[in-house]
Design a protein around this nucleic acid. Sequence first.
DNA 1: TTTGGCACTCGGTATCTTTGAGTGCCAACC
DNA 2: GGTTGGCACTCAAAGATACCGAGTGCCAAA
Lengths: 337, 337
Amino acid sequence: MLDDRKAAILRAVVEEYIETAQPVGSNSVARAPGLAVSSATVRNEMNALERDGYLAQPHTSAGRIPTDKGYRFFVDSLPSGRLEAGQTQQVRAFFDRAHGELERMLYDTSRFLSGLTDYAAVVVRDAEDPARIRSLQLVSLGPRIILVVAVLASGAIEKRTLEVQEDVDEVVVGAASARMSALVVGSLFGAPLSVAPSGTREVDVVVSAAAAALVPAGASDHTPQVFVGGASRMANAFDAVTTIRQVLDTLEQQYVLVTLIKDVMDRGLSVAIGAEHGVVPLADCSIVVAPYQIEGEPAGTVGILGPTRMHYEQTLAAVAVVSKRLGQALSKGSEER
Amino acid sequence: MLDDRKAAILRAVVEEYIETAQPVGSNSVARAPGLAVSSATVRNEMNALERDGYLAQPHTSAGRIPTDKGYRFFVDSLPSGRLEAGQTQQVRAFFDRAHGELERMLYDTSRFLSGLTDYAAVVVRDAEDPARIRSLQLVSLGPRIILVVAVLASGAIEKRTLEVQEDVDEVVVGAASARMSALVVGSLFGAPLSVAPSGTREVDVVVSAAAAALVPAGASDHTPQVFVGGASRMANAFDAVTTIRQVLDTLEQQYVLVTLIKDVMDRGLSVAIGAEHGVVPLADCSIVVAPYQIEGEPAGTVGILGPTRMHYEQTLAAVAVVSKRLGQALSKGSEER
DNA sequence: TTTGGCACTCGGTATCTTTGAGTGCCAACC
DNA sequence: GGTTGGCACTCAAAGATACCGAGTGCCAAA
């Protein structure tokens, strides 16, 4: 679509603009290695690139700035990069140390990735597919308070506190727990339950309360979890306070964030630039995403949110590596290498 | 310490500065209701207040700005305020709707409180005292993967994933679970465990692995949980980008945050102004805190972080009301009005 | 088709001036 | 003696003005 020279010029403009955040003039482009042409030629070409929508000019006597379309071309023509040695080292060190509970790990990963790239990082844990219940137990916490704990096939834990209207003793809870467990283990979490009456009225009261607590909540809690790390780094990326405000605000709206990332993934992209994603307050941002898999199954997404003028090559590499290593780390027992 | 007139003038300066963020001159102070003196008199008094460290002057020909000491006097002489009717209404509505799991509730509260005050809100859940284990269960998640789930007296759940070196079947896990449960229920979480050998080698392997997983982790996970809501609102409070950056960054460092809040509480304060707390990057911030209690027991802290020139009266009232209502909401069964 | 040359544009910076809010001090006043 | 009006003084902020120079578009020559 673009001849070689135009492509080279566009690339040079994008690279320099990413570096300096200043409009790029024909002279500095002409000086770029690998381009043996004069600035006048560059000017002509840049003119054409502007006509075609790859570049824009803030005002007449200024250099050019890439448009979203310009960035898009740049990103698409990017060779698949590698991390710097030091960063590879950091990743290794992080995942060697990393351990512990899933949620903690995902949050730590988002913070780590943010530190690695110097942008804000997001880790989304996909909503569980309707998962089979591996174990279910009722625990008495007080005379009328009972905790329902369900362990799902994935290892995730769902808990609900419920309050019954009359005092129940431990024995009743124990009986109810056994009954409930028999009823529910192996079935899908969130599925409606039919409770057959047992001999004891008290037990039935508890069981039906527990069943009720489990069912509707199953749906409501079926939303993905989001972990945002290094949001404050977005304050570095822009200098307009209002932009900073908007971006940070959006980062706190987990629903928007999840939708955005899901949307980008659905379109099969790994990068969404500026207005490509429809989220208006993030018009000056790009997002780089990669899914991670546990035991070969898609389990969530790792992403970076940065300014449109971000270091795409490093960021893409970082996101790719981290998502892969995260998946490995979470796939227990497959610690090969 | 300050005569009435000085106090009134100081108050007027603080109030106007909080409102306008501009240095306050003698004229506007003289115009304040309740002060029947000329600007010249005010000037003399302000001079004295500056000498005594309550006010400062950005430069010679500017008005005065309160110092931390000035704010301190202002806050200490504040009548205990009430929320506006609309806000009381909001609080009621929020806690009427609010329900669900503890963590979720604490996070929602921090977001709500942030919206109520327009500053950043922090909710800290205190580390559990060494709590008795109410229930313990091992659940098999895969041939070699076992999940240990402990329910503590408070209803908190601790879980550890562990991997054993050889395949164990469900029956073994069941046996180990029963044994472990008998061993551990009623004892303190995190306490060292002595494991007597049972008849079966396989069971012993699992039990000792589970015991090992439980003990050291008990200490490490014994740290308070922090929920920050509305951090982005700090971007409104300042206009120096570097300040915004610092503050947001600090807000992400949970350890610093917890220490800060704990420190303020330990000193028996409900407000820490500017440099009073030692956290340098938050020198332009004040923090307002109040503990919340579950069933009469201190369970955590609610706090607001805002600029030194925050609306102390409303904020104090909001924090007080929210901490109280939060405690009530979390004290199950005590939903009296 | 490329390039050197040239006139032109216009945002940014630097310099200077003006403005006005605010101060400190003093002498007069109650 | 505390209070007040008056006054000279200060100094940041806001305008005004000029200038600079990076950058452009276009043209004619190579």
